[in-house]
Design a protein around this nucleic acid. Structure first.
Lengths: 403, 403
DNA sequence: CTGGCTTTGTGTCTCCAATAAACAAATTGC
DNA sequence: GCAATTTGTTTATTGGAGACACAAAGCCAG
């Protein structure tokens, strides 16, 4: 007997690229999907149909005609609103957040949580996974994978957290293995992936936010302490040979500056983080609120016009600009996006920051690099979901066949 | 009538990857070509046969059996000794060199030349192309393309030289267009490609030299003045979004150091180039020989044991190590290779240099990066040839069909 | 020397996934 | 209503790969 003819006799190879195009919003209709994939209409049709039967996308065959266009309107493509989700989680100094994230970076459900500062990784990730499992139970969604963002460099391929800042975790903790153990213990038959939070934020911003369309995207951001960076090259996260690239915190931005634990002076880390701004403005860090919140308040609150605050802001902006210029010289990105405190420094005086970068980068004069703020809420969380989605984006058929 | 069945009914897509494997020496036999390509023996056989009929490789079917091996010996694959060549050229402060380079980075013929310091690009490249055309005439080889290495950043996609050091060329000279004009004027129907000399050296070292097999290769080198860098990621040159990446010369390596024209102090450029070593050793640059030759003589000649020279060497090594550590933190390479004076600094005291890099890079302690000297003669020249060969490596059939 | 064992090269058959080409459908504008 | 335009669908064809069987070329044991 012959096996019944499946509907998919073409488009198998294009399935992954097609899903990525819809996922990142670059293929709003079947017609542009055809041209973007560089295949025939027949193939694109088969691909779209298959992705629809897989429950990943929606093909709207009763389209609203675009105004001023000629010819037959194309079917509209969108991410399935009730499709499967990824379990995403972010751990930071103040607690954690678990969420379910669908294709297109859509946060379907979310649950904040708290951690005691001295909890070990297994305990924290156990709570995280329990929260995520609860969301899955409540929504009844199918889960394609799990992703975790941690405030630490994550070594590849080991999946260990080398410097978990402000968490009471041992350096070198095998977070990915622990995460997977917790997932298995919770009865979730999915694989878990881990990544540095700023790396994942950059990935999310590239696919769904301010980094969309950039070929060489540089992302620089502060958390509560220190500075992190990330680079997305041609749509893929570039994290170096061992996951440890873009440790940008120790670029020298003030030769006579503060001493840094790295042994040098005036590092980006200690000159442009929230504490640096507070100190430059002559404010002692208060007990209430995080350093980031206090520093941000300085930039956007009622004291933003105080001369001392304005001077401090200008100084820190200049330091940041010097650091960005150094990175521009080495990485030659075509867009820079800023997060954390840096985002608010940019907002405080965009012209000054852009001028410093242009002035101090070697090729700045011949073509300034656009510098923009991050635009996505919970970008690290969405980025963690991207990790989990990646196998599906690479090969939807085999990734979804295993369940 | 039906077209006569060509010998190639399979292997068309694998043609390029297969040629690259032979070109880089990673497929010495047909059996490993099969496994490396991940195809069946039948496909690998068709590919090897087609590449042989194209005149690009040689299949030795009367092989010498490997000692201690079982089974039928595999056919040996090698680059065709009398196949087509690329026209490669390098321009530097002292003159130029033209050469014909076959697959595998083999220099088939070479011709040095001189330039007057005040000659303009059109004149210099005219002489360069004339020398290359002479070599082609003498050898009767077929030419697949032309590549040019220049001591300047080359902006992409324009192909302009932004800072031609020590050449009397205007900044922003459209070297690629000029090069192609000269090629056309000489009656050569090939396209010319241009690149920065250190970028091309790194590419050549990756494919045929000390960088072979590295996934994230960082190359740092001096010429006569200044410092350049290059990065080869997964076998492809990474030159940033506009060809301007790895301008590493202005990393701060000595906060209290010499002033630099960039506006800062103690840049890698002015602290680790040949002039810096000469000055640190208290030697005035002499009129005879290039700065590079004088500095190298200090490291390897009779004065290498003088205390002042040893101190200067140690100081410059420390500065270089600091710069490399900064790059390791940002790029996380899995191998570093050094050229120019830096190669001889490494040779003078490898332990010291490696110790500084390990000490000052954030993750050095958990896994030191191998640091090696460049090993290829004329690596920029070979790299220029790689540029010309690339279209053939990408798609041998269509690249060779157009002639 | 012969026969087994192992590995590699070759020819044939088959099949998957894409294109090409013709046709049908949906909209705009006259 | 009708041409023009663009998009979706169906059918036939083809290119390029794998599966398989078999042949070839070397070891090794007896």
């Amino acid at each position: 007997m012959t096996s019944p003819r499946t509907r998919l006799d073409r488009g198998r190879n294009a399935l992954g690229p097609a899903l990525e195009l819809v996922h990142t919003g670059r293929a709003p209709t079947r017609a542009v999907l055809t041209t973007e994939l560089g295949v025939t209409r027949a193939t694109a049709g088969a691909v779209a149909g298959e992705l629809q039967t897989l429950g990943l996308i929606t093909v709207d065959s009763r389209p609203s005609a675009a105004p001023g266009s000629q010819g037959r309107p194309s079917h509209r493509l969108s991410v399935a609103a009730d499709g499967p989700v990824a379990l995403a989680a972010q751990v930071h100094a103040d607690g954690f957040r678990a969420a379910l994230v669908g294709l297109g970076g859509r946060i379907v459900a979310t649950a904040p949580g708290c951690v005691t500062v001295d909890a070990d990784p297994a305990q924290v990730l156990g709570e995280v996974v329990a929260a995520g499992a609860g969301l899955l139970r409540d929504t009844g969604r199918r889960c394609v994978g799990a992703g975790l963002a941690v405030p630490s460099a994550v070594a590849e391929p080991e999946g260990t957290a080398l410097n978990p800042l402000h968490l009471a975790w041992p350096a070198g903790a095998p977070v990915r293995d622990i995460f997977n153990d917790c997932l298995a213990a919770a009865g979730l038959d999915v694989t878990g992936h881990c990544g540095n939070d700023i790396n994942l934020a950059a990935l999310a911003e590239h696919r769904h936010g301010a980094g969309h369309g950039a070929a060489h995207l540089l992302c620089v951001a502060t958390g509560h302490r220190g500075v992190g960076g990330a680079l997305v090259l041609e749509g893929r996260l570039h994290s170096g040979s061992a996951g440890l690239a873009l440790e940008v915190g120790h670029l020298t931005v003030d030769p006579g500056g503060r001493p840094c634990h790295c042994g040098s002076r005036g590092c980006l880390d200690v000159e442009t983080d929230p504490l640096a701004l507070l100190e430059a403005a002559g404010r002692a860090p208060g007990p209430a609120g995080s350093l980031l919140a206090q520093a941000q308040d300085l930039l956007t609150g009622e004291h933003a016009t105080d001369p001392a605050v304005r001077d401090a802001t200008a100084t820190v902006i200049d330091r940041l600009g010097l650091g960005l210029a150094g990175l521009v010289n080495i990485l030659n990105p075509d867009r820079i996006i800023l997060g954390g405190l840096h985002r608010w420094l940019l907002a405080a005086d965009p012209d000054r920051l852009r001028a410093v970068v242009e002035e101090r980068s070697l090729w700045g004069r011949s073509g300034a690099v656009p510098i923009e703020p991050c635009t996505l809420d919970h970008n690290s969380l969405v980025g963690a979901a991207e990790l989990a989605w990646q196998p599906v984006l690479d090969d939807p058929l085999s990734a979804l066949a295993t369940a």
